Simulated scan of single mutants.
Amino acid sequence: MREASPAERAVIVQIDFGSDAIAEQLDEVRLLALSAGAEIAGEVCARRSSPDPATFAGKGKVQEIAAFVAASAAQLVIFNHQLSPAQERNLERAIGCRVLDRTRLILDIFAQRAQSAAGKLQVELAQLDHLATRLVRGWTHLERQKGGIGLRGPGEKQLETDRRLLGVRVKLLRERLARLERQRGVQRKARLRSEVLSVSLVGYTNAGKSTLFNALTHAGAYAADQLFATLDTSSRRLWLPEAGNIVISDTVGFIRDLPHTLVAAFHATLEATAQADLLLHVVDSASPARELQIAEVDKTLAAIGAAAVPQILLMNKADLTGLPAAVERDEYGRIRRIRVSARSGEGLPLLRDALAETALAKARDARLPSSRTAMPATADNAGTALDPVSFL
Rank of each mutant, 00 (worst) to 15 (best):
L238W: 05
I248L: 15
R329E: 11
L292M: 05
T230W: 08
Q226I: 10
A223G: 01
S285Y: 13
I312M: 14
A272M: 04
L262K: 00
A306N: 00
R343M: 15
Y222F: 07
V247N: 05
L278D: 01
L278A: 04
I335D: 08
P324C: 08
L258R: 02
V252S: 03
A295G: 06
E242H: 12
L258C: 09
T321P: 02
A303Y: 02
Q311G: 12
Q293V: 00
I294M: 12
D250R: 11
R290Q: 14
Q275A: 13
A229C: 06
D225C: 02
Y222V: 04
Q311T: 15
P259T: 01
T300H: 10
I304L: 09
G322K: 07
T300P: 05
L227F: 09
S249E: 08
H260S: 03
S287Q: 06
S287E: 03
I246L: 09
T233G: 14
A308P: 08
T233E: 04
S287T: 08
E296P: 00
G305E: 11
T261R: 02
D232K: 07
G253N: 04
T230Y: 07
Q226S: 13
T300G: 03
P288I: 04
P324D: 10
T251S: 11
E328V: 15
R339M: 13
A243E: 04
N245V: 11
L313S: 11
A342F: 12
L231G: 02
A289C: 03
L320D: 01
G305T: 09
H267Y: 04
I294P: 12
Q275E: 15
D225L: 02
E271K: 08
H267A: 11
N245C: 10
A307K: 06
